[in-house]
Design a protein around this nucleic acid. Structure first.
Lengths: 150, 150
DNA sequence: TATTGTTATACTCTATAACTATA
DNA sequence: TATAGTTATAGAGTATAACAATA
């Protein structure tokens, strides 16, 4: 992400009327912002998401996490390895091929800090939206994601 | 993007309540979908955006486009080169260092098809959202992007 | 047969630094 | 001094294929 340009852009921009385009730009901007806020914990946003998932469901396997986060099984291997070698998670054999992932004490401590960062960031995001539109935020994003809100 | 899992996911998922997370997932999913629809034109979503911009403001320079799309100047070079070597755009010297970009006849023809794909996709996106929420879509996305709607 | 974890590999996207030519 | 275009390079992120071990 480049830092925002402060001079007004006088260019015709036919793109900012396209929800899909603005969705991409909003996502790219917020990912960059969240990654920056997580930098001091040496975490990427997807790693924080992974820790949050494991904390909510200890014993999840790599494959299950990958399916939830839409990360390929093959890409989960180095991903989980990094969390493991940093001592944030442990693997526990479930059967001969699956290994449940759980947080270590260090992992729980890092997650506690990450959770604060994430929650503060989510709050700052929602606060960008005019109050009367806030109830529509999740339903709209879930719909664009093509998921039922529930 | 993996194809969606059809079996319901019974896993606790604390993430889908987080607007920022859902924003990222919605964006990733829609980028993948749009890229797939543009595949037959051998265009990526950012290339289509670039053509749309040049068409709206012929003579834009690489740097200006990069600032508009948040693509680094250094990354714009191979990007523009590809469009040029495919005969979609031409460079016209503005002064000793800047080159304005314009669409070639081929570029206009490809853009016409790309525009249809993009507009159809944008329409399909907005249709995912319940009708009464649609007016809030752009204001919310612009707010999350941290831009004024106007 | 299908699934888990893994390795290898390739491609895209993004980020930084440095260079030149020009304004 | 600042800007435009370029090159080189490194790091993420993502995609596919293939393999062994296990269910």
């Amino acid at each position: 992400m480049q830092m925002p340009i402060s001079v007004p852009n006088r260019m015709k921009d036919p793109l900012t009327r396209l929800p899909g385009y603005v969705l991409r730009r909003a996502s790219a901007a917020t990912v960059a912002e969240l990654n920056q806020r997580l930098q001091s914990l040496d975490l990427r946003h997807a790693e924080a998401a992974c820790l949050l998932l494991i904390d909510a469901s200890p014993g999840l396997t790599q494959s299950e996490i990958g399916r939830t986060l839409d990360i390929q099984r093959s890409n989960m291997a180095p991903f989980a390895l990094r969390l493991e070698s940093r001592g944030l998670i442990e693997r526990r054999k479930v059967d001969g091929r699956s290994q449940g992932l759980i947080l270590t004490p260090i992992g729980r401590s890092v997650l506690a800090k990450a959770r604060k960062v994430v929650e503060a960031y989510e709050l700052s995001l929602i606060r960008r939206v005019p109050e009367e539109l806030r109830p529509a935020v999740l339903p709209i994003l879930m719909a664009l994601w093509n998921r039922q809100s529930d």
